[in-house]
Simulated scan of single mutants.
Amino acid sequence: MTDQDTLDAPRDGTKEARLVAALTGKGQTLKQLSALLTWQPHTVRAAMTRLRKRGYVIDRVAKTEKSAARFKLRGDRA
């Protein structure tokens, strides 16, 4: 696992930085991320792919009967 603090962090104020912040902690569903960033779902997935290529580890927390799948940065405790 890569140490998240040593990664090439996105510039402050960018949508990519907002994506990283949204993935921190409990994480978000694809629908929530899409609404937050005003992006189409395929654009959110592409942005997460770019983050993974930069060394971020993003986990997909499986959906349950009551909630959709969530995405979150690995290493966050929430």
Rank of each mutant, 00 (worst) to 15 (best):
G75W: 05
A21H: 08
D59K: 12
R11E: 14
R11N: 04
R52A: 15
A62Q: 09
R11F: 13
T6S: 08
G27K: 08
Q28F: 01
A47H: 10
D5M: 04
S34N: 03
T29F: 05
P41K: 03
E16T: 13
D12T: 14
M48C: 09
M48A: 09
G13L: 05
G27A: 10
A21M: 03
D76M: 06
A17C: 06
L51H: 03
T2L: 02
D3I: 00
L30C: 00
V44N: 00
L51Q: 09
K63T: 13
K15G: 13
R50W: 08
R77M: 13
D59R: 09
A68L: 08
R50F: 12
R50L: 10
K15L: 15
T2G: 02
L7N: 06
A21D: 12
K53P: 00
D3R: 08
A9W: 15
W39E: 01
K26H: 10
A62G: 07
K63A: 15
K66F: 06
H42M: 04
K15W: 12
A68K: 14
T38S: 10
T24P: 01
R54P: 01
F71H: 07
G55V: 03
E16L: 11
G55H: 02
D8K: 14
D5F: 13
A46V: 03
T14Q: 07
L30E: 05
F71I: 06
D59V: 06
L33R: 01
D3T: 00
Q40R: 11
R45L: 10
P10G: 09
T29D: 04
S67Q: 14
K66W: 08
K31I: 00
V20C: 10
Y56M: 02
T64V: 07
D5Y: 09
T14W: 12
A69W: 01
K26Y: 10
K63G: 11
M1H: 12
L23H: 04
G75E: 09
Q40V: 05
A78F: 09
S34V: 02
L36Q: 07
L30S: 00
L36H: 04
R74Q: 12
G75N: 08
